Structures are given as C-alpha cells and as structure tokens.
Computed example of a mutant assay.
Amino acid sequence: MVPALARALAGELLRRAGEERRLMRQARDRPTGPWREPLAACRAGNAEALAVIVRRHGWPTTDQVGAPASTAALMILLHAPDLGLQLGCRDLIARAAADGLCPALHHAYIADHCAVELGLPQFYGTRVDPVTLRPCPVRSPGTLDERRRDVGLGPLDEQLRRLRDDVRGFRGT
C-alpha cells in the first residue's frame, strides 16, 4: 500500500472511531437524550466504510495504517451491526495476528465477540454481561488466564474488578 493511501485510510478510521466515541459520551452524559438513532446510523456508516476498506485493501493492519488506526478499525468492527462482516474480518485478523501484522489481542476481542453473538462460549473471556458484570460463558475456564496471558491480557479477576470499580464510579456509588 502506498504511504499516502495508508495515511488517508488511517485518518478515515480514526475520524470514524472518534465520532462514535463522541456520540457514546453524549449517550453517557445524557441517557434520556435523542442519541440512539445517531449512534446507530454512525455505527452502520462506519461498518459500511470498513467493509469497503477491507474489500479493497484487506484488514487494516498495524504495519499498514499504524497501531491507533488498526485499533480504531477493530473498535468499528466490534460495534458493527453486521455479524457477517465481523465473522469475515475475524478470520482476516486471525491471519494477520499469526503473521505478526496486528496484535493477538485484536483477534482475542473479535473471536470472543463472534462466539458470544453465535451463542458459543468465548475463548478469552473478553465479553462481560453488562447487567451482571460477569463474563459470558467461557470455554475451558480452568486454562482461561493462561490463554489471556498468551494474548497480552491480565487475569480475568483483575479485569472484572476494574470493570466493577469503573461502574461504581460512573454510578457514583
């Protein structure tokens, strides 16, 4: 990929992810405000743009667009309303991670996301039920922290403790 194209793609991914973050902050700050439709439209548009990028150039790996833009692409993908896109990109990300072109952590997040969406147990424990703040079902829980360590994640108990602390801080309790 030529450098100018890589910069343009990186800028577009970062801009789109930033817009979604802005809308998410609005939703958090004004839970009763009219944010659902703009957020859904943003996510749908982001997914369409990412699908075009992937069709034309493959998964935007860190060596192509840089770490921040590759992570932005992952965030767009995780929030996309299209499971087919997520499943197709999951396989591209798996290959890129195996080749050292993007972090293994990216594959862990999308693999778990797809598993949960398909009603299957997740492998790395990255998905948590937002109501109970407990992990969605996990495959082979006895070796979970070892798998998490292999992709750069800390122990699940630490992640859950931080999440609960964040939720308490957000709720002011």
Results as ranks from 00 to 15, higher is better:
M1F: 14
E158T: 08
L153A: 13
D63W: 00
A111C: 09
E146D: 13
A104P: 13
R28D: 00
L160C: 13
Q64A: 11
A47H: 02
R161S: 08
E117C: 12
D166G: 05
G58K: 04
H57P: 06
E48Y: 01
T71D: 13
A47E: 02
A73V: 01
H79F: 07
A44I: 00
Q86S: 04
D165V: 01
A97K: 08
M24N: 13
D91V: 04
D145S: 14
D82N: 08
R161T: 08
R90C: 13
L13A: 00
A40K: 07
L83H: 07
R134T: 07
V138Q: 08
A104C: 06
E158L: 13
D166I: 09
R43L: 00
G45H: 02
V131Q: 08
E48A: 00
V2R: 04
L105F: 06
L105M: 14
P130K: 11
E117R: 10
H107L: 05
G172C: 12
A10M: 08
L105C: 10
R148C: 12
R43W: 03
R43D: 01
L13G: 02
I76L: 07
T143F: 09
L144R: 15
I110Y: 02
A72T: 02
R55A: 03
V65D: 14
R56C: 01
P60G: 07
L101E: 08
R127M: 00
Q86N: 03
R25Q: 15
D157T: 14
L156V: 11
S70Q: 10
L87H: 11
R25D: 01
M24I: 03
E48C: 00
E158K: 15
Q86C: 09
M75I: 05
R139N: 11
A40Q: 11
R22S: 04
W59K: 12
A72Q: 02
D99Y: 09
D145H: 14
L87M: 12
L153G: 04
R55C: 03
E20R: 15
L23F: 04
T62A: 13
H107W: 05
P68I: 03
L39G: 15
V167Y: 07
P38F: 10
R134I: 12
G119C: 15
G172V: 14
H107P: 08
L144S: 12
C136Q: 14
G88I: 00
G84E: 01
